[in-house]
Amino acid sequence: MKNKGMTIIVKTITRITVWLILVYGIYIILHGHLTPGGGFPGGVIIALAFLNVLLAQGREFTKNWLKMNLLHDLEATSAILYLIVGILGISFTGYFLSNFLPKGKLFNLISAGTIPVLNIIIGLKVCAGLFFVLWSLAIFHLASKEEEK
């Protein structure tokens, strides 16, 4: 993956389509309790949107646009947030990871207790983790090429 990215036609189009892919990914995460989907496929879609930026615009642009430290912290704290939701379940009812938020009406967007909350946590974690795998593969290629010279 060269540092400059692709031609100018690709750069102009991805500037528009990246936001569409992001909106689609967030839609699948948020409606996880109403339609098929949930946290896992939504996280992969958002990671693929970031990969789109990385391929089309190059490494330098992505490093300035996406803050790597923020993604790093997001992945680490998502696991702890899941445990905090579980421990809050112990404090409200007696059981770990119980559904303690008010349940609401069927087919509403805000319903089903902790299920949308857990979906969002899982989506953030999967997205950050998978994007880091792709980023380190991109950086590794650069380093091995430099050693060969």
């Binding site: 996880g32 309790h33 109403l34 339609t35 098929p36 949930g38 559904n99 349940k103 609401g104 009406k105 069927l106 087919f107 319903s111 089903a112 207790g113 902790t114 299920i115 857990l118 979906n119």
Partner: peptide, 13 residues
């Protein structure tokens, strides 16, 4: 669980 997706309610509740 008040969720319409049964599979999501199984894996998350």
């Amino acid at each position: 669980t008040n969720s319409a997706n049964l599979v999501a309610s199984i894996i998350l509740d």
